[in-house]
Nucleic acid binder design. Structure first.
Lengths: 339, 339
DNA sequence: CACAGAAATGGGAACGTTCCCATTTTAAAT
DNA sequence: ATTTAAAATGGGAACGTTCCCATTTCTGTG
């Protein structure tokens, strides 16, 4: 069992200095003469030389690794975002390390420690609890995923949840619905975007707001189920419901059906995200599609540009809100009384 | 902007040698006296010292990173497996790099190159095309995900698809079904496990085999849809269908409903995997649950043991087949004629 | 108090690359 | 052929840690 060949072994075999051999192997080939280059390549081939990225990283202080911190890869929203990031970074030779924060501060802290110790080159993060100052202290490019509050210092990429919410509510409104329930998710911010837009929408259309129709819960189907049960136990029941995400909406759908309410005949439901499961329920869910893959792709693109000091694509801080798209399926229908 | 403090800076400030400082910082603390230790810790604290893992890796040839190669994180089967791996490795300080092979040989090759160059310590892989010899050449522990064919040299962790298939077929048989359709997925092996067990099951119960009831396709809902259409266009239609995975089963369910067949009254459907979506269809899908998280967890556990030379938990090669579980929901019912 | 043995600490080399600068070789111009 | 500039190559240092072995300091015993 012989040890792995190094660039020095290659150089010796090729009869050149390690500098020359290194130039051939790491892409500065234009600096070495054709004949020499071939000799080095042949030697490397013969020895089965594999560049030791660790040694290179130590010298250059570049690892070509980026970290992606998301709540939970098991949550159907995130795999697509992750692929967007992975595919994009991989294209230019970067490796992505994905970590799950589980919405927990301590896991986020652990992740940050790893980023520092392992000298990752960049970070794409859906923030749990960390603040901007701490991210800046990392001294590496950071792109924030989601995060409504604009930042002057840090780039962010999210979806236009506000407009998406408006479109969903308008869809219901146009179908004649006037009593619309809202099941929103709890947020680290005081009020969710959906909550705010719901209020604004009612104001704009001069609809009365019934606090009984607005329920907050977790982003789980269980929470959606219970919320719908509460909505359907009101004296004045809603004729349509907008849920902050598809998982909630699916729970709501199940609850409605369990109470023998027909969807969409008796009540319409709109979700948000467009996860795979939302297309396979019966009825299939009308939803606001978020550009999940694109979010990851965009975040990665910006990060890559920031990590490349020669790249001047993005001169100023980016705060992207990618457009959502209303996907009309079978869980929404005109309000009966208005037909 | 001053450079990051090194262990030497810490040592200087604490008034000790770098060896002593290093001993304190990397866990050989028992070798240094209490008073000295405190001085070093204080100095590190004061300077905000962060150990450079890259430098350590260069010296020790250990990166504490493992690679996880799966087909596609976007496919609902894999996120749970990935979490099983991530959670388990992270517990002992390892980082997991997840890569998507997309079933493509060239992506698998790229991944292997990365593992070698970056000197990862271990690999967990759902094989696309690579052979055992090449994996052994990596000279790092490797655990195979799935992979029916037992190996003497490499550990593997999968689920007991064979028994799972038997249980599913028996469930249908016990419900009185005698004409059972099979929609299996194409495989790099000649025949899939489900295919083999389907044949064996029919032999065991002395049921005739109708080749028209056995269809092979992709592991997609589209393929499931088309396969079901074909099954329902037979003269002798099946009264139940077993699909090789839930995605296929969902496609089959949609096709049946599109043809106005009632599930389960007119035809029963059983899937496999138990992905999230299978629980939200109407009717909810009866399926064979694969222990996805556990698969990842087990694979990681074995890998960790192999990477730790002092660990002798697994003396011989492991070829685990974790048990599946039949989840009876609403897509299966007794065959009418046998009631 | 001397001594041995153990405990604690120190110093240099090594890991494999890249970077910088010096030196040699080549090509072009006179 | 000579000079000059450019191109090609070489050699050493540096990145920050860990490992090995040597040295110093401590502890307990006779």
């Amino acid at each position: 069992m012989t040890r792995r060949p190094t660039i020095i072994d290659v150089a010796k075999l090729a009869g050149v200095s390690k500098s020359t051999a290194a130039r051939v192997m790491n892409g500065q080939e234009e600096l070495v003469r054709g004949i020499t280059r071939e000799r080095v390549v042949a030697a490397a081939e013969q020895l089965g030389y594999i560049r030791n990225a660790i040694a290179g990283s130590l010298r250059t202080d570049r690892t070509f690794i980026v970290a992606l911190s998301i709540p939970d890869i098991t949550n159907p929203f995130w795999p697509e975002v992750a692929r967007g990031v992975q595919d994009t970074t991989e294209l230019v030779g970067y490796t992505t390390v994905t970590v799950n924060s589980d919405w927990k501060k301590d896991r986020e802290d652990t992740m940050l420690k790893m980023v520092r110790r392992s000298r990752f080159d960049g970070l794409i993060i859906n923030i749990v609890d960390i603040n901007e100052a701490e991210l800046l202290k990392l001294r590496i490019p950071v792109v924030i995923l989601g995060g409504g509050e604009h930042s002057v210092r840090l780039d962010s990429v999210g979806s236009d949840t506000a407009s998406g919410t408006d479109v969903a509510l308008k869809h219901l409104y146009d179908l004649g619905h006037r009593r619309i329930g809202l099941i929103s998710g709890l947020n680290r911010r005081k009020f969710s975007i959906q909550y705010e837009r719901y209020i604004a929408f009612h104001a704009r259309h001069q609809l009365p707001i019934d606090a009984n129709l607005m329920i907050e819960g977790d982003f789980t189907d269980q929470a959606g189920y219970e919320a719908m049960q509460r909505l359907l136990s009101q004296k004045q029941k809603p004729t349509a419901v907008f849920a902050a995400n598809d998982t909630i909406a699916i729970g709501a759908l199940k609850a409605a059906q369990a109470c023998s309410w027909r969807v969409p005949e008796d009540i319409s439901i709109v979700g948000m995200d467009d996860i795979y499961a939302s297309a396979v329920t019966s009825p299939a869910l009308t939803t606001v599609r978020k550009p999940k893959y694109k979010i990851g792709e965009c975040a990665a693109r910006i990060l890559l540009a920031r990590m490349d000091e020669d790249d001047e694509t993005y001169l100023e801080t980016q705060n992207l809100k990618l457009p959502c798209e209303l996907i009309i399926r079978d869980s929404t229908a005109p309000h009966k009384d208005n037909l």
